[in-house]
Design a protein around this nucleic acid. Structure first.
Lengths: 183, 183
DNA sequence: GTCTATAAGGTGATAGAC
DNA sequence: GTCTATCACCTTATAGAC
C-alpha cells in the first residue's frame, strides 16, 4: 500500500514539526523549516500528508482523543464529585501532552521574543519571583506560574460580572492558589 | 511636521490593528487586512508606521509601560509584603489592558477555530462546567477559567520537580484556586 | 518514496503621481 | 497624506523525472 500510515518518515516529520511548532508557533513555521529539520524536501512532506494543516491535526490527534475520553468520563459523574475529578483529569491530560499543549500556546513565546519586547521577559521573571514571595522552593515557583497563567484567560472571556467584582474574585482565588491570605 | 504623532489616522490604524490581532493573532493578520478594516491602502499604513512590527510595538507600549511601573514598585517591597502586592498589581494590570493581553494570546483561539479542532471547543466548555462543579454562579465560572489557564503555563516551563511532585502541587493548588478540598 | 523545478498566490515594503 | 502600481521574497502545493 502506498503512504503507509506508520512509516518511519511520517513519524520523523510529525516529531520535527511538533518541535518547531512548539518554539515558533504553527503559523510561524513553514514547510521549508520542517523539511530542513527532517532533512528532506517539501515535496516529501506533502507526499506523506495532505497539507500543512494535516500535519498539525495528526500531531494533535492523540491529545484530542485523550481529551475526548476525559470528556465522556466526566459526563457520567454527579455534580458533587465531578469538580475534583475534572481537576485531576485535566492536570493529568496536560502533563501527558506537554508538547502538544506547548504547540497550542506556541505563538506567545515567539511574540515575546520580539526585540522590542525584550525587556518584558525580565519583568515577567521578576513578577514570578514576587508571586513566589521571592522563594526559591520549586513548589512556590510552580504556584507563581499558575497565577501568571490563570489571570489572562479570565480577562479574554467576557464575564458576567463588573470589573470590581471580577478583580475581587481574581485576587482572592489567586491567593488561594498560592495558599496565602491577603494583607 | 510630517507624521504627526497623534494624528487621527494613526489612532484608527492602531485600533483596527489591535482588534484584528486579538481575533486572528499578529502573524495571522496582514497589512492588507488592517488596511481593509481602516478603509485605506497598505501604503498609508506604512506612511504612518515604520512597518508591521512598529504597529504592534506602539500598540503594546502603554501596557508595557504600566508593567514597567509595577516592576519598579515591587522591587522596593520587602519579601513578606511583595507577594500579595504582586497579585493585586498583576490582576489590575491585566484587567486594565485586556485588549493587549488578548493580542498576546490571540493565536490560540485562531488555532482552535481550525475546522479539524471544532469538537475541542465543546470539550473545553464542558470541562469548565465540571471545574465549576456545574455551578452557574459567575465567581465559580471565573475560578474554573483560572484553573484552565493556570495548568498549561506550568507545563511549558521545565520544572525543577519530577512529574509526580508536579502533579501533586498542581492538583492541590488548583483546588486552592477553586477553594475546595480534594476527595 | 524522494527528488528538482515550477506554479500560483500572498506578504511586507517601496516609488512616484496626485 | 493618500493613492496605484510594482518589487522581491516567501508561502503552500503540484508535476513529472528517477
Amino acid at each position: 500500500m502506498s503512504r503507509n500510515i506508520r512509516s518511519r518518515t511520517r513519524r520523523e516529520i510529525l516529531d520535527a514539526a511538533s518541535r518547531l511548532f512548539a518554539v515558533a508557533g504553527f503559523k510561524g513555521t513553514s514547510l521549508q523549516d520542517i523539511a530542513a529539520e527532517v532533512g528532506c524536501s517539501k515535496a516529501t512532506l506533502l507526499y506523506h500528508f495532505d497539507g500543512k494543516d494535516a500535519i498539525l491535526v495528526e500531531m494533535l490527534a492523540p491529545a484530542v482523543g485523550a481529551f475526548d475520553m476525559l470528556d465522556k468520563q466526566l459526563a457520567g459523574l454527579a455534580d458533587d464529585t465531578v469538580q475534583f475529578a475534572a481537576v485531576k483529569g485535566y492536570v493529568d491530560l496536560v502533563l501527558r501532552f506537554r508538547r502538544e499543549i506547548t504547540v497550542l500556546y506556541g505563538d506567545i513565546p515567539a511574540l515575546l521574543e520580539h526585540p522590542a519586547l525584550a525587556d518584558v521577559q525580565g519583568m515577567v521573571d521578576r513578577l514570578l519571583d514576587a508571586l513566589a514571595a521571592r522563594s526559591s522552593e520549586p513548589p512556590a515557583q510552580v504556584t507563581a506560574l499558575m497565577v501568571l497563567g490563570a489571570v489572562p484567560v479570565v480577562c479574554m472571556k467576557p464575564a458576567a460580572m463588573d470589573d470590581d467584582e471580577l478583580r475581587d474574585v481574581l485576587v482572592r482565588s489567586a491567593a488561594g492558589t498560592l495558599n496565602v491570605r491577603g494583607a
